[in-house]
């Protein structure tokens, strides 16, 4: 029986002035303090009693967290306090990473996206996180400030289990960095919810592709999935299918089936495992077809 608190339970709002101060406070209060940016996930879990905290540590004023910048040599940096809407509407994101803008714009509602952040989406490590797959495919790396200073953590080694990551007490993610995208990149995010838009994903499929001499097909495709595995999942098996041969609609079908075969989703309140598997196949096919059509133009 879920019987949440009407408002937020008692807690303290802490606003550190520096990253060092934030990391120290979080480390000193391990288990009862959490970094706080948009709060869209934490508030709900605090009300439900799933998350119990004494302190919300606001990281929005800390150095680097508000940065949203693109460097043609280095790529895109998205600070931890940068909202989904800021990302989705930023000209450089729309130009160089339109698939990320698409994924960000698919999250919840406009007003929620004014609070929700990409870094928050990543740190919550929900299997349903809509922007995580795209950030993974774009080889995202997190910049983390811990008690021992700053370190970099690639997204492909960040997630451990639903809601669990490699972050340690005292860690504050400052930003996620996406390198310069491969030349000719085309990507998309296909999301299926119960409502037309705005829902959590039953299945989410992020796909990108770009021309390359390194594969026999002349292209490299990458496929990441949401809501069908305990952690955001990249289907290397299906990507392999698409690297060896000339791309045809039959090969795309084969890759879609391989994607489906690579996951073992669960039944939950949003959808059955059986439906999810079918949708992985169909949405992957749809996404690959769309990307391939654009690439081959």
């Amino acid at each position: 029986m879920i019987n949440p608190h009407p408002g937020l339970p008692e807690l303290q709002y802490v606003k550190p002035a520096t990253l060092q101060e934030a990391s120290k406070f979080l480390a000193d209060n391990a288990g009862v303090a959490k970094p706080y940016s948009g709060g869209t996930d934490s508030f709900v879990r605090l009300r439900d009693g799933v998350l119990k905290l004494d302190y919300l540590v606001d990281i929005k004023g800390l150095e680097g967290t508000k940065e949203l910048s693109f460097d043609p040599q280095k790529g895109l940096t998205i600070g931890a306090a940068v909202t989904m809407n800021q990302v989705a509407s930023h000209p450089d994101v729309l130009k160089h990473y339109p698939n990320l803008a698409e994924a960000a714009a698919s999250v919840a509602s406009y007003q929620l996206r004014n609070r929700a952040t990409i870094v928050g989406n990543i740190c919550n490590a929900s299997p349903a996180g809509d922007t995580i797959g795209t950030c993974m495919l774009l080889d995202g790396v997190l910049k983390v400030h811990g008690v021992d200073g700053v370190r970099e953590v690639p997204l492909n080694s960040f997630f451990l289990a639903p809601g669990r990551t490699v972050l340690k007490p005292g860690d504050v993610v400052i930003a996620v960095h996406l390198p310069v995208p491969p030349k000719g990149l085309v990507g998309t995010y296909k999301k299926l919810g119960r409502n037309r838009i705005g829902d959590l994903s039953i299945v989410g499929v992020a796909v990108l592709g770009y021309p390359t001499n390194e594969s026999a097909s002349g292209y490299r495709f990458r496929i990441a999935l949401a809501s069908v595995a305990p952690v955001p999942f990249e289907s290397f098996k299906a990507e392999g299918v698409l690297s060896g041969k000339k791309i045809t609609s039959e090969l795309i079908d084969e890759a879609a089936v391989a994607t489906m075969d690579s996951v073992t989703p669960i039944d939950d309140v949003r959808g059955s495992a059986r439906y999810r598997k079918q949708m992985v196949k169909n949405l992957t096919r749809e996404a690959l077809t769309e990307v391939w059509t654009k690439l081959s133009k």
Binding site: I2, N195, I197, G198, R270
Partner: peptide, 13 residues
């Protein structure tokens, strides 16, 4: 028991 999982029609629907 929440709007997260008890969906009702929204404007786009």
């Amino acid at each position: 028991p929440s709007f997260v999982d008890y969906r009702i029609a929204t404007a786009p629907d």
